[in-house]
Design a protein around this nucleic acid. Structure first.
Lengths: 216, 216
DNA sequence: ATATGTGAATTGATTCACAGCG
DNA sequence: CGCTGTGAATCAATTCACATAT
């Protein structure tokens, strides 16, 4: 039971959940793998394979019930509970995240904001009071925090990650352009926008521009 | 010549460039695939395979010259020129990006900031004057902009993408939690932090915690 | 000797065709 | 019939072993 789900599939399940929510928001009750694939930017084959990997959610001949699919996707992804999240590093990006409105809707609750800069400690960011990184273990214990945004400069990222892991945090969402090393049992997802620009540079310029037409 | 490089490899080349820059910054002149792999969070096999995909950069018996590797990686990735970049959507995230200090160092130059909110148009963000989205085509032409940050709310993302493509922009770095559809010849990289949290939720909770030991 | 470059083997992911249920 | 679920086939990516160059 619950055969392990490939990472590539997990990434798409997140997209399907988003798409399903969009359908639900406009009152659609049933969708086909074709419609899901179109909206999610993949093929109907892929959708069916991915969904079948985690259970039997559809009805042959008529498709998937939006409400069922949403519930099952949330269950599979571990989104049936609320996840308290810390932000470590209250620079521009950390502050922008603290003000981001829609985490609650997604079952993530900002529960701590940290920095090492005395000028920032004590200030507010969104609904949060910025505390010193030294207080991390206490706050993690108090709020049951298991994941955190890592929004410190690249050269401070590994040390901050170490502090987080030491405090018991097991999931890091790293925004720094740096590779983070963590022990087994701890997970890092990276949000690498500098890298994103570089991958775009490759796509646009690594190969010759070749006069691609956008007609038709 | 220049056999096409697999996407998975391109992603790692970006990491290698970063690691190589770190070595260069502390004065190291030669590195082995072992050292690169360790720092980049992958195997020496993978490093050699990736680097051999785009050329013969090393010296058997002694490794890779840091300066050569940096130059070659930049060339392969299309980072030998400067890329003007626009920001579309001057909310918290767009503003944070406008203030991000280190794009210049990476050969990306912020060259335009856009929004549709009259309250924001005319204000400054970092070194940029915020202009109305209607001015996009003019500014794109004037500065030769080929890529853009897409930092608008999810429900405005597809329309903004259309405006960008219409203005001739061929590379989008999408921050919105939404799938963006673009014509052939246009590239989208997504920076999905809400999705990142959800993937972490799966990693931490989708499967039973199973008492993962961090000992040994 | 030493560490790269590369074909071969393996593993994983995607695509497909169609069986099977409604 | 229509559309899902799934084994088989194809394709891509990773791992490995070792020949090769310095």
């Amino acid at each position: 039971m619950a055969a392990s789900i490939p990472p590539a599939t997990v990434g798409r399940l997140v997209t399907y959940l988003r798409v399903v929510d969009e359908f639900a928001a406009v009152g659609v009750e049933r969708v086909s793998s074709d419609e899901l694939g179109e909206r999610a930017g993949t093929s109907a084959f892929q959708v069916r394979k991915d969904l079948a990997t985690c259970g039997r959610f559809g009805t042959r001949g008529s498709g998937y019930t939006v409400a069922t699919l949403e519930r099952e996707l949330r269950r599979v992804l571990g989104l049936t509970r609320s996840w308290p999240v810390a932000i470590v590093g209250m620079g521009r990006i950390g502050q922008a995240l603290a003000d981001y409105p829609n985490f609650g809707r997604q079952d993530f609750v900002l529960s701590g904001a940290f920095d090492v800069d005395p000028a920032k400690v004590g200030m507010r960011a969104g609904s949060l009071l910025i505390r010193h990184l030294d207080d991390l273990p206490d706050v993690v214990r108090e709020h049951g925090i298991e994941m955190a945004f890592l929004t410190v400069p690249a050269d401070a990222a590994q040390d901050a990650a170490k502090a987080l892991v030491g405090a018991g945090v097991r999931g890091l969402l790293n925004f720094a352009p740096a590779v983070i090393h963590v022990p087994a049992g701890v997970f890092v997802e990276s949000v690498d926008f500098v890298g994103g620009l570089q991958r775009l540079a490759f796509a646009l310029g690594g190969r010759p521009a070749s006069t691609v037409g956008i007609d038709g």
